[in-house]
Design a binder for these strands. Sequence first.
DNA 1: CTTCGTGCAAAAAATTTGCATCCGT
DNA 2: ACGGATGCAAATTTTTTGCACGAAG
Lengths: 135, 135
Amino acid sequence: MVDFLQILKEHNIKRTKYRMAILELLIKEEYRFISIDEIQDRVSSDFSTAYRALELFEENEMIYKTKINEKMYYSYRCSNKEYHHHLICTECGLKVSLDFCPFEDLEKKCETLGFGSFHHSRDLFGICKKCKNES
Amino acid sequence: MVDFLQILKEHNIKRTKYRMAILELLIKEEYRFISIDEIQDRVSSDFSTAYRALELFEENEMIYKTKINEKMYYSYRCSNKEYHHHLICTECGLKVSLDFCPFEDLEKKCETLGFGSFHHSRDLFGICKKCKNES
DNA sequence: CTTCGTGCAAAAAATTTGCATCCGT
DNA sequence: ACGGATGCAAATTTTTTGCACGAAG
């Protein structure tokens, strides 16, 4: 819980009304990715303010950012900093962290395929059980 | 070579100047993904004409479409229709088709992870050997 | 000859930026 | 008080769309 306050202090980031509101929201909804619209709606900031705060948080590795259906979504990161992959539900934004790398095998084959290196896109997408059952 | 002409005929798609020019270009550069800018530049059509032709081709499964660095890229498909994954170089657009599925293992683990189903994003990205060496 | 392809200009949608003002420290 | 944060409006970027004209079958 002191986690992110420390980062703010270390980087001399002012604790303003909207930044705090956005961080609180992201922490509360840490188990999923949320859209800029939901963020703007729930904290009632200007869109540009929200975008600027989120950009700042991402630069300082406090949040994740990913694209779902052509729009950016955001999720709290502080509590789990080791590199890992996510399974993300494209219906509800649910975030499931993987404790293994799905690309290990591909990595090995990379060389023989004419590829120098391979982007482990951190985020993989699907439909979670809940959303699948509801549809 | 008759491949795509047949599709055009089957779907009553008129063989116009720009459509043919775009298809020819895509066939010539089949080993890589190319941008709308390159297409527009090399066939000198209007952008809207190129976009409309490409949309049509994609609907009829004649081409692939993928996003590299926030922009769409296009590549000829007709000659290889079985479902497969691509490794795509984000520097030069090189397209390498995979004859195996990199997500087989993940698929199996999906259920235990709370995921109903999993999108096999067809395209995976990296840097090809050539571009890596040049940088 | 008639349907549909094309160019042009303008719309759309998401995100970014310049600038004047306001707030946190 | 000072520098950075915010709101507002306008720019940006890529792609899409409406409409009038022109070309393919």
